[in-house]
C-alpha cells in the first residue's frame, strides 16, 4: 500500500485516488463478464456485440487514471474500439456473403435521400459550417467543418467522383499530419514558441479531422449512387 502511494503525483486529488481501486475492480469485472460471454455463447454476431462491452471495460480502466492523461488516452481508445468493431463486422459480412453467395444491399436501411434541403441549401450550409469549424479550430472545429464537407459532398447530384479528388484529399491529410507533428515537436524543442506550436497543432488537427469526415461523405455518395 505504501509503495503504491509513492507513485501518485501530488497534483492528483485524493478523491480521484480514492476512486481508483473501485474503478479498476469494476473495469476488470466488466471485462471478465464480457469475455465469459464471448467464450460461452455461440455465434459470430454475439461475439461482435460483446466486443463492445469489452471495449467499455478498457475505457473504465483508462478513465480511472483520471487527470488530463486519462482524457488524452480515452480518445485513441475510442478510435481503436470503433475501428475494431467496424473491421470485425466487415469481415463477418464478407465471409457470410462468400459462403451463401448472396449479394445484399450495402446500406440496408430505409434511407431516402430525396429531400428538398439537399438540392437548395447545401452550399450555404456547408460554407457556414466550414467557416465556423475553421474559427473553432482543433478537434471540435475539424468535426464541424467535416460535417459541412460531408453534407456538401453527399448532397451533390453529380454522378461519380474524379479520382484526382481522392489523391488531393489524401495529400492534404498528409500535410496536416506533418503540421501536427511539427507543432508537437516544437512544444518540446523550443517551448518559447508555444503559441506557434499550438496553432500548428490546432490547424493540423482541424484539416486532418475535416478531411477524414469529408472522405466519409465521398464514400457515402458513391454507395448511395450505386444503390439507385
Amino acid at each position: 500500500m505504501t509503495g503504491a502511494e509513492v507513485l501518485v503525483p501530488s497534483v492528483v486529488s485524493p478523491l480521484v485516488v480514492s476512486l481508483y481501486k473501485p474503478a479498476i475492480l469494476v473495469g476488470l469485472l466488466t471485462g471478465f463478464i464480457g469475455l465469459l460471454g464471448i467464450a460461452f455463447k455461440k455465434g459470430d454476431l454475439t461475439a461482435l456485440i460483446l466486443t463492445d462491452i469489452v471495449g467499455f471495460a478498457m475505457l473504465i480502466i483508462v478513465a480511472a487514471v483520471a487527470t488530463d492523461l486519462a482524457e488524452a488516452l480515452v480518445l485513441p481508445g475510442l478510435v481503436v474500439e470503433l475501428a475494431e468493431i467496424l473491421a470485425i463486422s466487415e469481415v463477418l459480412m464478407s465471409r457470410e456473403m462468400r459462403k451463401t453467395g448472396k449479394n445484399v444491399s450495402l446500406i440496408p436501411l430505409p434511407l431516402s435521400l430525396d429531400m428538398e434541403i439537399l438540392e437548395t441549401a447545401p452550399t450555404f450550409l456547408a460554407i457556414i459550417l466550414i467557416a465556423y469549424g475553421a474559427f473553432l479550430s482543433g478537434f471540435t472545429g475539424g468535426a464541424v467543418a467535416g460535417v459541412g464537407i460531408l453534407f456538401y459532398v453527399l448532397s451533390r447530384t453529380i454522378r461519380g467522383v474524379p479520382s484526382t479528388l481522392w489523391e488531393g484529399v489524401a495529400g492534404i491529410s498528409g500535410v496536416a499530419w506533418v503540421l501536427w507533428l511539427i507543432g508537437f515537436l516544437m512544444f518540446f524543442v523550443t517551448p518559447q514558441y508555444w503559441l506557434l506550436a499550438l496553432f500548428l497543432s490546432a490547424f493540423g488537427v482541424l484539416i486532418k479531422v475535416a478531411s477524414k469526415v469529408g472522405l466519409i461523405g465521398v464514400l457515402g455518395r458513391e454507395e448511395f449512387k450505386r444503390e439507385k
Binding site: 461482435l48 456485440i49 467496424l86 463477418l92 457470410e96 445484399v104 436501411l109
Partner: peptide, 12 residues
C-alpha cells in the same frame, strides 16, 4: 455499425 451488420447478416 452493429445494426447494419445485424440487418445485412439477417438478410443473407
Amino acid at each position: 455499425i452493429l445494426l447494419r451488420a445485424i440487418v445485412r447478416l439477417e438478410e443473407m
